[in-house]
Amino acid sequence: MNPVNYLYLSALLFTIGAAGVVIRRNAIVVFMCVELMLNAGNLALVTFSRMHGNLDGQIVAFFTMVVAAAEVVVGLAIIVSVYRSRHSASVDDAALMKL
């Protein structure tokens, strides 16, 4: 088997994640789909690392994880505060630029 299959898998997961972002309305699920996309990207980076025989890809994936962690913290905090003000976690309910 060629490791390129990991890339195919990564592309597939990324696409599914992207579709999920657009399809789902619950902000938390949307957010999970974003995480899925990030993970798919990480898989591609790790595979690249292996294919090129150096660790730079893994380093980037590592940074991606760190940034994703930070993003999750901020994103979820935003979701919570939006929920507090609108009593809804639906991204469609936040369609106006006012409360």
Partner: peptide, 16 residues
């Protein structure tokens, strides 16, 4: 963290 927030926010019509 996700599960925590899910617990906080609860279930709603957005899940449809």
């Amino acid at each position: 963290l996700f599960l925590f927030v899910l617990m906080l926010v609860g279930i709603s019509a957005a899940d449809s």
